[in-house]
Design a protein around this nucleic acid. Structure first.
Lengths: 353, 353
DNA sequence: ATGAAAGCGCTAACAT
DNA sequence: ATGTTAGCGCTTTCAT
């Protein structure tokens, strides 16, 4: 109980205990070089009895390669990012890389500090979702030759490897789905136009309207901040319009939650009084009532791809920039008018919902 | 573009550039020791022009203290854990500690590998949510004198610092709330009895029944695995009973989602046909229809407390074991009968929901 | 096949 | 107040 902290055993101790040189032990551990069966066994015994675990700090100092990937994201609480991290981590662990997580919570100051940490830790690569602003800082990594991979959001001026979504097309398709159902007055809860996901989704929405010969009504486009309250307020603005939309596309998951709260507060029924499609298929989307029609993103796969991209780039620093775009899938549930086609089973109680 | 990876500059280079000794530079960086204004300035200049960032691996090798905390959790995708991590991280960053994340996705093999990594990285402390099984492995850290802090789940045999919830009381209160509303046949979707959160919540449920003189009906207690499908299946078992419960307490957030899906599939209305209370107040709880009554846990605060506990213990290894229990709060929304008291504003369309 | 030894970048004890 | 230097634990030539 009142035990002193026992220092971890060192390679030197293992060598002494096995009666061999430190070089031999090192060869056994790394698997490089040839060691006779006899010594191999003796060394392995010593490792086990001493419960030896190689000191990573010392190894890194020697070979100047850390096998650490820094992941800088803006909000780990958003399921989108936690799934992304999950995907990244699975690949990194397979490849015996360490994941250093920097969660900035949308705070520039914290993000900076994380990037400094990455620099100090000499990370082998960085995966990040840029706020779009702080590009100068990321430039440091490029200068230092540290591979950078952007996910989800496309940085403004920085040419880097990129994993992104076919945002424009996804929004275009969703709006067309609304058309198919007979909607003509369609609202958009947009994200900040400064980030690519925000502007591209808005562009897709606009193109769909134009393609159908409908005018673009600016008051039908309400911008939120990608957070819950943003969606809440934007939906209020839409509902307060003299002629509110009959269908609304929401640009991300958190804003969808906010929009739903507002709709419930007003006592409006979905989809009869208002139809809804949201970006991101979250675990809760199917548990809502009615279950939510969503644009599903292959988030986990995007994480995996990002990790592969950064590992490839670490192995092969040269070579053309790679930008991978993932397609989305519209998962039709019951929050738009075709609800009845897909969910015919409703009880009497629900008929007039 | 086709630029070679420039090696980061070293303290030695800074010293040379500033025309001082390495010791002086070291003193400037660490803030220990006294340096004249003149040299201070020269050193700082050199640091800026060379864009010097201290090599952490080297520092660690010297000090023998890594300032890394390993965080081993079972499922980063669960909002409970991502919020927890968020809380932990904010404290660690403030104290200039690194957070090494090990997400096992409930996979023992991966968890082991993470723990080995923690050992190799010589982490200063570990925060973990035990599956209850792999105690022997955690024992290694205790032997090595590495502080351990358990969160959420109380390990079986291991005496460690602990952050937990007043689970028993929370369940007790929730069931009493059901009583107050007139329910007499109350179901429980329980978690695995092998983990403390599962067994304690079940105990609270049972005590509440006994306190009211009601019999404990085993078929009203259905056990799930704390995942979505577990809740889905458990709720089905409850609804398939000859005499189903009129109210159900669900032992965690993911199972609540599953339970909701089953309820919707059966076309039952909440709260009139069935009332529901779930553990964990998640962002989506208020966006459900009806908004969900939940037992809210101060998750973020638990993360903060866990981080403080581990940092304290690193500073002061001796001293009695500390186990901090957080209280819950019942947030009454509209998924239980008193709904009408709290949410009087319903439109005509909703009257018979 | 094995060992001896230099040195990665940094800190701190000691010397001045 | 500043500099000199040994050494943290490991890998990797270079000898043998």
């Amino acid at each position: 109980m009142t035990e002193l902290r026992r220092k971890p055993s060192t390679l030197k101790q293992v060598a002494a205990s096995a009666g061999v040189s430190t070089a031999t032990v090192s060869r056994v551990i790394s698997g490089n070089g040839i060691v006779s069966k006899k010594l191999l066994k003796r060394v392995q015994n010593a490792i086990d009895t001493l419960d030896y675990h190689p000191n990573q700090a010392a190894r890194r100092l020697r070979h100047m390669s850390t096998k650490i990937v820094g992941v800088a994201i803006s909000d780990i609480q958003n399921p989108f990012f936690s799934t992304l991290v999950e995907g990244i981590e699975s690949v990194l662990q397979e490849n015996r890389y360490l994941l250093l997580l920097g969660n900035s919570n949308e705070n520039m100051e914290r993000e900076r500090q994380h990037l400094n940490t990455f620099l100090s830790e000499r990370v082998s690569g960085v995966i990040f979702n840029s706020t779009g602003d702080d590009i100068a800082y990321y430039e440091k990594f490029r200068l230092a030759g540290v591979p950078l991979v952007a996910v989800d959001r496309k940085p403004n001026k920085l040419d880097v490897d990129l994993i992104q979504l076919a945002n424009e097309k996804a929004a275009f398709d969703a709006v067309n789905h609304f058309f198919m159902e007979g909607h003509r007055r369609i609202g958009l809860i947009a994200g900040p136009s400064t980030v690519s996901t925000g502007s591209e989704r808005c562009a897709g929405y606009q193109r769909a309207l134009q393609a159908s010969g409908l005018p673009i009504d600016q008051e039908l486009i309400q911008t939120g901040d990608f957070r819950l309250t943003g969606g809440y307020q934007a939906m209020r603005s839409l509902l307060d319009l003299p002629e509110p939309p009959s269908a609304v596309l929401v640009s991300n998951n958190l804003m969808t939650l906010g929009a739903l709260q507002m709709i419930h507060e007003r006592g409006l029924s979905i989809p009869d009084q208002i139809s809804l499609i949201g970006f991101d298929d979250m675990p809760w989307a199917a548990s809502l009532r009615p279950p939510l029609t969503v644009i599903a993103q292959p988030v986990y796969e995007m994480g995996i791809a990002a990790a592969h991209l950064v590992l490839d780039r670490i192995k092969e620093p040269e070579g053309p920039i790679r930008q991978i775009t993932f397609e989305t899938k519209l998962i039709v549930r019951a929050s738009c008018r075709c609800a009845k086609l897909f969910y015919p089973k409703v009880t009497k109680d629900e008929q007039n919902l």
